[in-house]
Write a protein that binds this DNA or RNA. Sequence first.
DNA 1: AAACGCATTATTGTCGACAATCTTACTTGA
DNA 2: TCAAGTAAGATTGTCGACAATAATGCGTTT
Lengths: 229, 229
Amino acid sequence: MNNLISIKSATLSEDIAQQLTNAIVTGHIPQGSKISEPELAKQYGVSRGPLREAIVKLEGLGLVTRTANVGARVIQLNIQDMLDTFTMREALEGMAARLAATTMSGEEVKSLYQLIDKHQAHLDANQDDHYVQQGGNDDFHLRIIHASRNTKLIRLLTEELYAVIRMYRRHTADQRSDPRQALREHRAILDAIANHEGDLAELLMRRHISRASHLLKQAMEHVSVASPS
Amino acid sequence: MNNLISIKSATLSEDIAQQLTNAIVTGHIPQGSKISEPELAKQYGVSRGPLREAIVKLEGLGLVTRTANVGARVIQLNIQDMLDTFTMREALEGMAARLAATTMSGEEVKSLYQLIDKHQAHLDANQDDHYVQQGGNDDFHLRIIHASRNTKLIRLLTEELYAVIRMYRRHTADQRSDPRQALREHRAILDAIANHEGDLAELLMRRHISRASHLLKQAMEHVSVASPS
DNA sequence: AAACGCATTATTGTCGACAATCTTACTTGA
DNA sequence: TCAAGTAAGATTGTCGACAATAATGCGTTT
């Protein structure tokens, strides 16, 4: 039915995996709903073969759970899982910040300061804005992660965990976060990295993420489920 | 050909994934070798369908890399990847130890002390032994990980990363490690946990893993590839 | 003799159909 | 009326075959 967005990829299976991921993260396929292979195959206009491969991939990403002879279900977001996930993020991104403190070049640091300044300017311009957590190269966290130079860490954080984290952000609408406070924390982390203070960078990154998780928790306690798209 | 070990599972795909994982970790399928779908399907006596699903799973575990229209290859162990992986372990198991310091019950702590004593006794009995890193419930690290009560962390460490780590241990034969030193470190970590000193437990666990990674690095620099089984 | 191009071959990607299992609805009995 | 058993339907798991892409080998050309 919605075969509109077709990101041509080398293989059908990858396409489907990509589209399914988006559909789940944005809520077009609601939480806890069953994944019907015949139905989805028809919707996306493919056979069940590639679709199944895509589902297996999504299981690896933790977006769906599968039980033998029964099928796949979209995960159901809940506070405990969110806290668990963010605790992992704390450990991993903390380590990334620590590593970045020794691996980042002067130019990289400079470029990141510019990014922060840009965010600051953007905030000053639109007071009401919600500091949209943009993915891509403009995301502070992604920059730090890549700066760690640790291939495994990068892959885990940006490919395997990213989808679920995006999903939590998306579905709780994340309104509570104070963008100016977040920006201040980003700057403090970057300062520590610029001074090659790995311990401090890790500590600050952990606090930063821990704070975000507390806010998300509050949001999840008060706000119900978010609507699609 | 080697259809001897058949762990009956609910679905063929799981079986194959399990067997393939073992074959790769033990070296029966050598590093860097190509995974031929027709060949393996014939060997295991299944069609290509379930086999492909298994391969997708292995890709998620990081045991093989796949390129479209070309196929899958077993990963090639190298020092840099090992160091990257162990750095992640440091962050994650360090966090697990920190969490365990607050979540472990008195009985659990007691039981772990008993396990350590058992290991000690085993070491005193067989002086020459290499303190075989047993998996299962007798592994100190696994106990700590599970004690963290963090489902996501547990799944990541024991299901996703475990295979690769096992592979590194296996292929470098890990002879260098000083089992008595390792045991002393285990005891120190447990002491910290028993005293509910999360910071210390994390620090000690990190050092412990870091030390192991250094030893593995030396082993990989001096020892060549290990033989199967 | 070496290199380029083309044809052949083999492997991967995809599809539709069959088998096995689970779910659901109905019937039957207490 | 409710419960249990059973049969029908639907869904997942598996298979073999076809299509598309990559790898291989041969012949031609310079």
